[in-house]
């Protein structure tokens, strides 16, 4: 366990370092922020002063080196546009995105696993086929379109749920959250559902395939031969086996949920980091984009680590020490 953690930490540092170079060079290639940031009417001396202040006159390697030294001191740079530390701006917006992502994954699990098990137990029934048809739609319809349709149906036509924003928030463990107020809940439901659809379809497929395979195993027949009730056979013997792939895949996908949140946040005007990223790219706000990407990579690394630990807890045959880190 300790060896595993240390190995994983070292690898993470290397990944982060390589990532930082790629991100920095990539953003450098996109465009010159000077064109956007500096008032064209300002005189040459003023323009050059700004360029020098932002450090944009130096060669790219020097800029990268300055950036790296700052990062090692915990400073991810200052947003060109907001004139505030990039990290601070991101952290301010992060709870909204995390709340949305966790809500989406939660919905995917709560709806996806039972639906997948039912589809796996009765693959030829109308309900089993219906669930599978639904999951195909969830896979293939584009997120932004479904989002717009949800708004059209539930907000515009039926008027049941609000179409944008976070609604009322309350402080919870030091951050502002929506899910603890009724108004916030009504606001988060549609975007979370929208973001969940793709993962839900994935969970349905994994749970269905797992259920079909596990149901044929001798140990299920043996469990039934012990006289266990169907509830126990399915709720314990089947569920525990199918949870292994579901948790693994979903855990790894949590990162991509955060990445996909960019679309959902834009459609539902959800004030999270996804929307922030889109705005920053539009403004060529380099420090903010770089900080966002590095944050996301760090998050992926942490998530993978947690998933591996969860996986070893769920499947007794896996020991962390044996696992390739």
């Amino acid at each position: 366990m300790l060896a595993f953690t240390v190995r994983r930490l070292l690898q993470s540092v290397i990944v982060l370092f390589v990532m930082s170079i790629i991100v920095f060079l990539g953003i450098y290639a996109i465009g010159n922020p000077v064109d956007i940031l500096i008032n064209p009417e300002a005189d040459i001396a003023e323009q050059e002063a700004t360029i020098r202040r932002l450090g944009l006159d130096k060669p790219v390697w020097t800029q990268y080196f300055t950036f790296l030294t700052n990062v090692l001191q915990g400073d991810l740079g200052t947003s060109f546009v907001h004139n505030e530390p990039a990290l601070l701006i991101i952290l301010e917006r992060l709870p909204a995105t995390m709340e949305l992502a966790v809500g989406a994954v939660g919905l995917a699990i709560i709806i996806g696993i039972p639906a997948g098990i039912i589809a796996g137990l009765y693959p030829d029934s109308i309900i089993g086929r219906g669930i599978m048809a639904g999951s195909i739609l969830g896979f293939s319809l584009p997120t932004f379109w479904v989002g717009l349709m949800l708004i059209m149906l539930f907000s515009v036509m039926l008027g049941w749920l609000p179409a944008s924003g976070r609604g009322d928030t309350v402080g919870f463990l030091g951050v502002q959250v929506s899910f603890l107020t009724w108004d916030g809940l009504t606001h988060i439901f549609l975007p979370a559902f929208n973001l969940a659809l793709f993962k839900m379809s994935l969970v349905i497929r994994l749970a269905r395939a797992g259920t079909r395979e596990v149901m044929l195993q001798d140990y299920i027949k043996f469990a039934r031969a012990k006289g266990l009730s169907n509830v126990r056979v399915i709720g314990v013997h089947v569920l525990k086996n199918i949870l292994i792939p579901v948790v693994t895949v979903l855990g790894l996908e949590l990162g991509s949920v955060i990445a996909f949140a960019v679309v959902t946040e834009t459609v539902f005007a959800w004030p999270g980091i996804g929307k922030l990223l889109i705005d920053s790219i539009g403004n060529l706000d380099r420090p903010l984009v770089v900080a966002y990407l590095l944050m996301t990579v760090t998050m992926f690394i942490i998530i993978n680590f947690v998933v591996d630990i969860l996986y070893s807890l769920l499947d007794p045959r896996v020991r962390l020490g044996d696992m390739k880190a």
Binding site: Q217, D218, Y219, K221, F222, A223, R224, A225, K226, G227, L228, V236, H237, K240, N241, I244, L314, D315, P316, R317
Partner: peptide, 22 residues
């Protein structure tokens, strides 16, 4: 109710009869 209490069964392949995750 009779299964496993009054009538029980042992299967052929011991590697497959016990649930691996319990």
């Amino acid at each position: 109710n009779l299964r496993g209490s009054r009538i029980s069964m042992v299967f052929q392949d011991p590697m497959m009869t016990l649930n691996p995750v319990l």
